[in-house]
Amino acid sequence: MQKEKYIRFDRYLNNELSEGEINSFEEQLKSDADFKEDFEIYSALESSLRSKFENEEEALVLRKTLSDLGSHYIKQGENDKKETKVISLFRFRNLMIAASIALLIGFFLFNNGRSPVYDDFAQHNSLELAVRGDNNEAVSKAEAAFNSKNYEEALKQLTILSNNYPNDTEISLYLGISQLELNNYAEAETIFNAISGGNSALATKAVWYKALTFLKQKKLEECKEILKTIPESAEEYPQAKSLLKKLS
């Protein structure tokens, strides 16, 4: 009898009963409380299990997203102590050499006779942070945003990263560049000053960007003064020399 009941439930839910059978089924729901209770549980189970099994993979993907966001936004404050190191300075240096050459070629091609503007010189190396540690989401977001010139988002992500890795000059530098792109000159200058005052491999790069900060504000005298402090041995020297020439 019990088995018959469940077969009826199944057929009712599948719309397989005849009109007469449906009527008597619904009559029984009204008159037989036990029957009704069983049916309610049966159909709740049906809907719950269907949803669960159909969405099993989707739910897993969601969990992954949430746990990434959770470790990013909730645990980030506690990650400060973890060991993290930026290892891309060597690659960065190579990129800079390549970029300087590209810049020089650029000047020969189009830059004759008009006063230099910031955009002509502001050709940033793409951001490629190789950070060891578990903040990869912010890293890839920062890279994607910066490299697609979405500086507002880059600023956001880099701010998160720089809170986590306060001693990382590469992150600071790009934070400064983002500020500069967004015309937050005072913030940009503070960052570039801090880097250029230190002795990291990026110190002269920061000096160069400080000069660009003045250039963008059309403070040409200040810009020149800064450019003159870039030593001949520096990678930025060709660019600095070229800009200086345009300014004088």
Partner: peptide
């Protein structure tokens, strides 16, 4: 298949109840 599906669902219904 139909029969055993509704039987299994029936067992589950009783476990829940």
């Amino acid at each position: 298949a139909r029969k055993s599906k509704s039987e299994c669902m029936g067992k589950l219904t009783q476990l829940v109840k």
